[in-house]
Design a protein around this nucleic acid. Structure first.
Length: 108
DNA sequence: CGATTGACTGACC
DNA sequence: AGGTCAGCCAATC
């Protein structure tokens, strides 16, 4: 079981990995869960490094607008959208209904 | 170790 | 959710 070795990065990975299927989280949301909402940029940076893409579904991480970044290098920006749709997340105009799919670490 | 950058967010217009 | 400015944190060069 992975433990906090460096914190921050690892913590971010833990949280992102904890995002359930059919749900998406925002950088700010994750940043806040890490302890500092200002870490939003670091969150993006951590995902950018993405040392463990198999355990880090960064495709479930979207910005505050519910829109994914165009810098995703999964092999295709559109690729991420398909992955989310495959999990049940419907995209609207290239964006996700945050109020509907934003990950809520609660109930359910 | 110092400076830069970055997949962000919030406030203001 | 449209555009711009500023802020904060950590990793990378």
């Amino acid at each position: 079981m992975p433990q906090d070795k460096s914190n921050t990065f690892t913590k971010i990975y833990e949280i992102v990995r904890d995002i359930p299927c059919g749900n998406v989280a925002t950088y700010g949301q994750i940043a806040e869960l890490t302890g500092n909402r200002r870490l939003s940029r670091v969150v993006g940076y951590a995902l950018h490094s993405n040392p463990d893409p198999e355990n880090i579904p960064c495709h479930r991480v979207v910005n505050r607008f519910g829109e994914v970044s165009k810098a995703f290098a999964f092999g295709g920006v559109n690729r991420q959208v398909e992955l989310l749709e495959a999990e049940g997340v419907k995209f609207k105009d290239g964006k996700v209904d945050m109020k509907t799919y934003q990950w809520k670490k609660r109930l359910l």
